[in-house]
Computed example of a mutant assay.
Amino acid sequence: MKKRYLLIILFSVFVNLQGQIIKNTEQLKEKLIVINNQFEDSFLRNDSSIIIKYYDDKQPVCMPEYHKALYTKQDIKSYYQQWFSNFKINAYKKVIYEVKQIDNYAIEIGTFNINSANKKGETLIYDGKYLNVWKIEKNVKLTLISEIWGADKAIDGSNFSFIKTNSNEIPKPQIEKFLENEVNKRNQRIAELVTNREGEKHADEFFTKDAIYLTYDSPMFIGMENIKPYFVEHEKPNGVSIDSISIKASRMIPLHNFVIEYGYYYVDVSWDNKKGRAIVTGKSTNIWKRDENGILMLYRQMVNHN
């Protein structure tokens, strides 16, 4: 009888905790909607102060499309000020797709739509998706640790060429060496698969079944059923040769079965028997999750070009 009552009590506690988690996630999403409304207003008023206010003071990471990553609030502020001083934002909307809470961090994924005009009066429609990492402080205060975004379809990067940024050294990981080595080995394996143009293996070996992949010039790909076909098509040889590739990790945040990683890539590509050549550089925000065997798999990943 005592065991029965104990089971009932434990079950009740579990149900309450589950309800609490769901409730907290919903509250978190509501707070993010309020913040996004403030961001939208900031864009419409060409005022970066609200955005900068939310950024982390110590180790912020901003990964704008068509530019290298920014690591200080001053550099991030300068980036936004230059953007706003050269464009009139006529309409701006952010829509949250999902919010995932991992310990005292929140991963926010969503879409954005920007209708703007440059100083010449030329219209720029910039529609895309984003991935933000927030730290949940005491009293549910939210601090923006990082943001990355990218267009749903190709737009001319020269639209943003007027923005000048400082050339900063990529920060090194400050975590336990074994974890740094583990992530580096996973990145080396990705480099091998990309070099060999093995898209199907790339998807199978690295993404969870319920992963979300956000990449350049494409809408978000949700679930393996959409991620795998993308990689199969994207990594077909088609006369393209990967002559050199480097994938490196910068800052990392270990969170039990998860690791938040900020990564950077350099790819030397050639085609038509090396008659054509291009250097492609970019960056990513990676949310790794350990599977049942303890292997780090990509749970959420967003990539964009410099």
Rank of each mutant, 00 (worst) to 15 (best):
A211Y: 00
E198I: 08
G199Y: 09
F160D: 05
E182Y: 08
L193N: 01
G157M: 11
E200H: 06
E176R: 12
N184H: 14
T165P: 00
Y213R: 00
S161T: 03
N184Q: 15
I190F: 10
I227H: 01
G223F: 04
N184A: 14
I212D: 06
V194C: 05
N181T: 10
Y213C: 11
L193K: 01
H202G: 00
D204I: 09
I175F: 10
P171A: 10
D210P: 04
D204Q: 14
D204N: 11
K153H: 12
I175K: 08
T165C: 05
K201G: 02
F206V: 03
R197E: 03
K185N: 07
K209I: 12
A211S: 08
I222L: 09
A203E: 07
P173E: 05
D204H: 06
I227M: 05
E200G: 06
I170D: 07
A191Q: 02
F221D: 01
L179V: 07
I212G: 06
G157D: 04
N187T: 08
T165I: 10
K228P: 02
D152G: 12
K177P: 06
E182S: 04
V194L: 12
G199F: 05
D152W: 13
V183R: 00
Y230D: 00
I190H: 13
T215C: 03
D217P: 05
A203T: 02
Q188V: 04
Q174I: 08
K228T: 05
K164P: 00
I190Y: 10
N181L: 09
D156Y: 02
N181H: 06
I212A: 03
P173Y: 06
E225H: 10
P229W: 07
K177E: 11
P171Y: 04
I163G: 09
N166C: 13
Y216L: 11
D152K: 03
I170A: 05
F160I: 03
P171E: 03
N166P: 05
D156T: 04
E176Q: 14
N166W: 08
S161F: 08
S167T: 13
H202N: 14
H202A: 07
S161M: 11
A203F: 02
F207V: 01
Q174W: 09
L179R: 14
D210I: 03
T215G: 02
E180F: 02
S167K: 14
D156K: 01
I155S: 00
E169F: 12
E225N: 09
F178A: 15
R186T: 10
A191R: 04
I155P: 03
M224K: 09
S158F: 04
D204K: 13
F221G: 02
I222Q: 10
F207G: 06
K185D: 09
N159H: 05
F207E: 00
V183D: 02
A151V: 08
